[in-house]
């Protein structure tokens, strides 16, 4: 069985351990038609596009919706009504503090139960193995992205079992960065590979803070020995609260801003690549932009719906000229 998810705070380890294939659901360039009957046009293209795919044809039997933005939460309800897929809402805590870990552990246990209800089987051995393999995959992806981001690869490995993903990594050749001024691309999801390619075409060397980029594989790994399924649940809870920060969560201190500012330090400019109508990111934008400008960074805002490549190219090239001038 293939189990879909949209939010990267979904513990894929559980799905994999249950014997299912975790599949990241992303919008593509399919025009929105059927979805319009269920969702308003002022929802982001990731929400509308994913639903459109689900209504047309998608090779997924069940979907785990993980609490993040309001749109995704309502999308879970729509999905349940409008499709024949099984739907489960995984309640990831919104406020991340000392109390959230225990709550998350119990939610992880609930999700495990649900996956078994769906016919999966999670054992200590299978879970421990999935945990170890995902860590391997994530560490490898981080190394690759450090050298040169490969979004095509990243999209691909999110459509398969972690074992196959590791094999996929083995069989590839490391691409070398062409250099050029460095930019940080920050934002939510960018399901369009041709947009990611534009930055490189224009001559930038890219670093990202995207949910479809490094945020997929950036964690701090807890130091603990795993002796039982319960240990594994605790491990996953710790791992996922340490995941690269997302604006749909409330952190103690300004953890997200601190991360973005830190990532921007060695960059010549910062591009906000935001999906139109993405509330969590747009609410942060004015303040984060100001903080970046205060540390001397040039900032460009790109709003995406269905991308018009030449219009984007002009903006990105002009930004390149601003930086090179």
């Amino acid at each position: 069985m293939r189990v879909g998810y949209l939010c990267t705070f979904t513990p894929k380890e559980l799905i994999d351990a249950a014997g299912f294939t975790p599949v990241r659901i992303l919008a593509d360039s399919t025009p929105i038609s059927l979805a319009s009957a269920h969702i308003q046009s002022y929802a982001c293209i990731q929400a509308r596009g994913s639903l459109e795919k689900a209504l047309r044809k998608i090779d997924v039997d069940a979907v785990v919706f993980t609490r993040s933005c309001d749109t995704l939460m309502r999308l879970a309800d729509i999905w349940e009504i409008a499709t024949k897929m099984k739907v489960y809402s995984f309640e990831f805590p919104t406020k991340i503090d000392s109390t959230s870990k225990n709550f998350l552990i119990s939610e992880i246990a609930e999700l495990a139960k649900k996956l078994e209800e769906w016919g999966g089987k999670i054992t200590f051995d299978s879970l421990k193995e999935s945990i170890e393999l995902y860590k391997l995959l994530e560490v490898e992806l981080a190394k690759i992205f450090d050298e040169k981001p490969d979004y095509e690869l990243l999209f691909k490995v999110q459509q398969m079992k972690v074992k196959d993903a590791l094999n996929e990594l083995k069989s590839r050749e490391q691409k070398k960065s062409k250099g050029g001024p460095k930019i940080l691309v920050t934002g939510s999801v960018c399901p369009f590979l041709d947009v990611m390619k534009l930055f490189e075409d224009v001559g930038f060397s890219v670093k990202d803070d995207l949910c479809t980029g490094t945020r997929f594989f950036t964690f701090k790994y807890p130091e603990m020995e795993l002796r039982s399924v319960e240990d594994c649940f605790r491990y996953l809870a710790e791992k996922y609260v340490s995941k690269a920060e997302c604006p749909t969560k409330h952190y103690e201190k300004d953890r997200r801003f601190e991360r973005v500012l830190e990532l921007a330090k060695d960059c010549d400019g910062v591009v906000f690549l935001l999906l139109k109508f993405c509330d969590p990111h747009f609410f942060d934008y004015p303040q984060l932009k100001q903080k970046l400008e205060e540390i001397g960074k040039k900032v460009l805002l790109l709003e995406l719906e269905f991308p018009v490549i030449e219009q984007l190219r002009t903006r990105i090239e002009a930004f390149y000229e601003v930086i090179m001038c």
Partner: peptide, 20 residues
């Protein structure tokens, strides 16, 4: 098709363009 507001210094300091 486009409108732009451009802040000028020695070259372009900053710019904004209308969306599509």
């Amino acid at each position: 098709q486009d409108s732009k507001v451009i802040a000028v210094e020695n070259g372009v300091k900053n710019f904004v363009m209308n969306d599509k």
